[in-house]
Design a protein around this nucleic acid. Sequence first.
DNA 1: AGTTACATACATCCGTGTATGTATTTCCAG
DNA 2: CTGGAAATACATACACGGATGTATGTAACT
Lengths: 206, 206
Amino acid sequence: MRRTKAEAEETRRGILSAAERLFHAKGLASTTLEEIAAEAGVTRGAVYWHFANKADLILALFEDAPLFHEDLLALLSDDDPAGPLGALEAMVIAALARLATDERRQRIYSMVALCDHPELMSRVMEHKTSMMDAVRLQLSVAFVKAADRGQIAAPWTATTAADAFDWLLHGVISDWLKFGRRFDLAHRGAEVFRLQFSCFRGGAPA
Amino acid sequence: MRRTKAEAEETRRGILSAAERLFHAKGLASTTLEEIAAEAGVTRGAVYWHFANKADLILALFEDAPLFHEDLLALLSDDDPAGPLGALEAMVIAALARLATDERRQRIYSMVALCDHPELMSRVMEHKTSMMDAVRLQLSVAFVKAADRGQIAAPWTATTAADAFDWLLHGVISDWLKFGRRFDLAHRGAEVFRLQFSCFRGGAPA
DNA sequence: AGTTACATACATCCGTGTATGTATTTCCAG
DNA sequence: CTGGAAATACATACACGGATGTATGTAACT
């Protein structure tokens, strides 16, 4: 019952999609390839045809999926009228709003944030950390630009502001995802970030 | 070769200690009871004598170990001369310093933060989330007290300040633990928290 | 015809849980 | 205080399922 190339690509995507859902629901380690295959409506044979093994499947998921961190960079406009700092503020608020309404991104971020297995899945971890490093570097550059334009008021500096931004962002997302999404990510997140950015600027809020 | 009660307690502690190290190094799911027993210098028989199963062992670890969140409450003094907000600031700086120098706490916090397995280890998760909820509630109360005494300047509120505090704290610790402790937690963390608290107060920094 | 895209079947191992063995201790009667 | 029974603190051995990986079959596509 061989399928056409298009159909094969469809099953491949179906396997990835099923894996994404199950990994998020049950965790990476306790989800079996058999379950993934069943969820996708195929057998383990299909899974092993498209992917060498479980780690390979997870890596493919990471490469294929829309990562929240890449969203950040995509949403960071270079010529915002409010300058680099305004661009960062708009970016983070937009990114939170997108994450709040996109289940797929939520699942992916959960996997990245909650990944166990530092040894066996070292390849996965490498991919993940290098990616996060790259994003953090870009954000640091943006904060330095903001400082250069005098948008960061003392005693904040480009470094401390970038740290606070980064930690605040990771913290809010982890809290929201890990504990059942019990608050309104987009609104409460945006509120705190607006206050935070007005602190960076050193002035009274708008 | 039965041991005396004191020796038995020693092996129990040895098993817990070995489990702590291995869980931190390899993740909860991929660490086997056999490995834990070997690391502790005993056999799986000893493990099963002291603990009903793996989940039970993990729960025992959580109950036995010094939790970072409990540190927070323990370090929160009720009558700081700088008022509730000053007490919170001193508390978080002390807690970060303690975490930075205590490997045991680092390992425990990693396990709590990175726990996979929402389904199979539901008891562990319940324990963890209920504990974190309790801590967050206490911190919220402290921030409300600070606001009542006029220590939180507009536009910050007790709620937004507590959110920012919580997210900043989780963010900095997760970043530090997950990516190889590549910065000075105590100093950079304290620096940012000091800036953050001066923002809460609405005034210029000390 | 040869390759592709799977399904099926099988071998194997690994981890768990449990049952059993056993040397000590602890406890208690005498 | 002492001898022995019972309980303790493990080690060892075993049974079992479950997951992985691989080998093989096979029908459709190219």
